[in-house]
Write a protein that binds this DNA or RNA. Structure first.
Length: 669
DNA sequence: ATCTGTAGCGCC
DNA sequence: AAAGGGCGCTACAGAT
């Protein structure tokens, strides 16, 4: 049953709905423990677009409230004292924030579906998909496109009511599944965190246009300068490089010009080959040898020719100009003068991502990725606090390493952290290389840089599932040496080896990776059924391996076209699962910690009436930002540090996770 | 002209 | 048997 609440009754006469008063709606809604909520808005920007209607209700009764004539504040207390059910709450929350309405609790059907299917990309999570899946009803979502032009027409009212009608039933079904899979704590965390993320998006981050303009100009000039040098080299050596020179007289630039588009790898590869650079590399996905000129290949060959380093420099400036250049002015909100990006709350690892593709037809503006802004000062310093404000930037020190130490409980790792001081990479080096065992870490850092570098690369690679081969490739050392380092690493940290082994076995057996026993977040292996089928073929009752050996010895076609690819596929998938089992719990637990820290901060701001006074401009995996007036900055720095460390304590019970805040005018450490 | 896939590279 | 995780944006290249 649809009820319309409006102060312009004469405009609404359809029999499909009844008209009722604000008081009527409140009388009913106050009797509910949980209320489904949705909004229809003029657009996507809470700072410039108005709410057209607010819908509240449940499966029985839906109230469509005409916000152009009814004061939304009449519903503030109701919304702030009930459990609110929403689909993709982050969107509506920002519009509620605009009206200073902060719900008490949220259950987000979209996030719940994401929690239930983390790791599996092809599960549809739109409201339409969920209504169909859980209620077996098909909604007509095409109406969404006419809301802007039609306003509250009859069909828009019907559509708007449908958006809240089914949420309770979806919730009920999801809760059963969440319980079955042990994911109640995960969704609880994310239902709380959605406030934080909505708040961060709402606040946005200030970009100083004057500074940014200066940076853009400098980058452009540098890029042009390097490009000229590249071109000049080719043109100065016309006999050597004639295939790269355009023989047509260029009437605008006087003289010949190069044919090379320096942004095209395809065009630069032949040049690099001519210079004597080895551009061949094995493709990671396909295993096929291909030609590539990325930095990983070029850097070690930088001495072959001066053009190699020039080209690397060019690519660097090109990246700055294209990705972090003048396009950023379009990201600045006309009303707030700040950059309000979009975050996706639950990726496969439980991490956030940032950014959004634009779509002019749908009126969606592009948003920047605020998590990969170059970390050099000249770029980050353009992101500032507003005048009279301060930024507080706080990150966890060694978050993932500490999480790993706490999860693996390797006794040597624990000892290192408990003593609390020294250089981690030197410590690893002292464990890998017997000749360094007795030396103080300071001395290793100072006098054994090469070995320390190997230890650093090895530790990083191994913690993400790399092996001796990866170590060898990364550090340009022999395969044997790589294997040696790999073995030495696990010999030095047997607890780590044991932990990795158990994690791998669990994932291969269960088909999902559980990150920790605090949030219980899980990521499901999308190809697990396929893997199991393969496993059964190889290790089931048939004597697969006898046949395999026989056919292999005969070099038969059957071996080459059937057996060998099958075995390769099986071990590839097994390796994929195993690496996931190592990496996701570390990344995902770290993400959980940062999320919980945000929840604590938001709670503090809410309880101390500091929302919209103390802003949260950004979050970058292990780093949280606050922005506030100077007079309370040092107080807020302590709050931020405490919240982050308190969140750390929940997940890291053996080795504490530290956070160090920095009060600053710019985004820096 | 517009779409899609890929290479490359920015961050943690 | 394979052999370093997660993400998003920009450019090019090829297809339609």
């Amino acid at each position: 049953m649809i009820n319309l609440v409006t102060n312009q009754k004469s405009a609404f006469t359809d029999e499909m709905y009844s008209i009722c008063t604000v008081q009527d709606s409140l009388d009913y809604l106050y009797s509910l423990e949980s209320i489904a909520l949705d909004t229809e808005t003029e657009g996507f920007d809470p700072h410039t677009d108005a709410i057209i209607s607010l819908q509240l209700g449940n499966n029985d009764i839906q109230y469509v409230i005409d916000i152009s004539t009814v004061d939304i504040q009449l519903y503030k207390e109701l919304i702030e004292t009930r459990l609110i059910l929403m689909q993709n709450a982050k969107f509506d929350l920002k519009f509620l924030f605009k009206h200073n309405i902060i719900p008490k609790d949220i259950y987000d059907t979209f996030l719940a579906e994401r929690v239930l299917s983390t790791g599996i990309d092809n599960i549809r999570k739109s409201l339409g998909a969920l209504v169909f899946k859980y209620c077996n009803v098909s909604l007509d979502k095409s109406i969404v496109n006419v809301i802007g032009t039609e306003g509250l027409s009859t069909r828009v009212i019907q559509y708007a009511a449908d958006d809240v009608k089914y949420l309770h039933q979806i919730q009920k079904e999801q809760l059963i599944k969440l319980k079955e899979l042990g994911l109640q704590k995960t969704i609880s965390l994310d239902n709380k965190y959605v406030f934080v993320l909505a708040y961060i998006e709402y606040c946005g981050m200030y970009l100083n246009s004057t500074k940014w303009k200066a940076k853009c100009l400098e980058d452009k000039q540098n890029m042009q300068n390097i490009k000229n040098q590249l071109d000049k080299y080719i043109l100065d050596n016309p006999t050597d490089y004639k295939e790269f020179i355009d023989n047509q007289y260029n009437m605008f630039e006087e003289g010949f010009s190069t044919k090379i588009n320096w942004n095209s790898e395809k065009q630069v590869i032949p040049l690099m080959e001519k210079l004597g650079v080895n551009v061949e590399i094995k493709d990671k996905k396909t295993g096929i040898i291909k030609k590539s000129i990325d930095q990983k290949i070029l850097r070690p060959q930088i001495n072959i020719h001066s053009l190699v380093s020039l080209y690397i420099k060019y690519k660097g400036y090109q990246k700055e100009v294209s990705t972090y250049g003048e396009n950023w002015f379009e990201y600045i909100n006309s009303k707030t003068k700040r950059i309000h990006t979009n975050y996706t709350q639950i990726m496969n690892t439980g991490r956030l991502s940032s950014g959004q593709k634009g779509n002019k037809k749908k009126g969606i503006s592009q948003k920047p990725n605020m998590q990969n802004v170059p970390s050099e000062d000249r770029t980050r310093n353009c992101f500032t606090a507003m005048p009279k404000n301060k930024l507080i930037v706080c990150d966890y020190s060694g978050q993932e390493q500490i999480v790993l130490a706490n999860k693996s409980l390797d006794k040597d790792l624990l000892k290192f952290y408990k003593k609390g001081l020294g250089d981690m990479h030197s410590f690893v080096a002292s464990k890998i290389f017997p000749e360094l065992a007795e030396l103080p870490l300071d001395e290793i850092k100072k006098n054994h840089k090469e070995k320390r570098q190997i230890a650093k690369g090895a530790g990083f690679a191994i913690n993400y599932g790399g092996t001796g081969i990866t170590i060898a490739e990364n550090l340009s050392i022999s395969l044997e040496k790589g294997e040696e380092v790999y073995k030495a690493y696990f010999k030095a940290f047997p607890g780590l080896a044991n932990y990795f082994k158990k994690e791998k076995e669990k994932a291969v057996k269960l088909g999902y990776v559980q990150f920790n026993e605090i949030s219980y977040r899980k990521s499901f292996i999308p190809f697990f059924e396929e893997f199991k089928t393969l496993h059964n073929e190889l290790y089931g009752t048939d004597n697969f391996w006898d046949i395999y050996k026989l056919e292999k010895s005969k070099h038969s076609d059957y071996f080459k076209t059937e057996l060998s690819p099958k075995v390769r596929k099986y071990f590839k998938k097994k390796g994929d699962i195993e690496r996931t089992s190592l990496n996701y719990p570390i990344q995902g637990t770290s993400a959980d910690i940062t999320k919980l820290a945000g929840i604590y901060v938001f709670k503090y701001l809410k309880e101390n009436n500091l929302l919209f006074k103390v802003l949260m401009p950004n979050v970058v995996h292990d780093e949280l930002h606050l922005e506030c007036s100077e007079d309370i900055a040092s107080e807020m720095a302590v709050v931020l540090k405490d919240c982050m460390e308190k969140a750390g304590e929940k997940f890291c019970k053996t080795i504490a996770l530290k956070a160090d805040p920095c009060i600053t005018d710019y985004w820096t450490h």
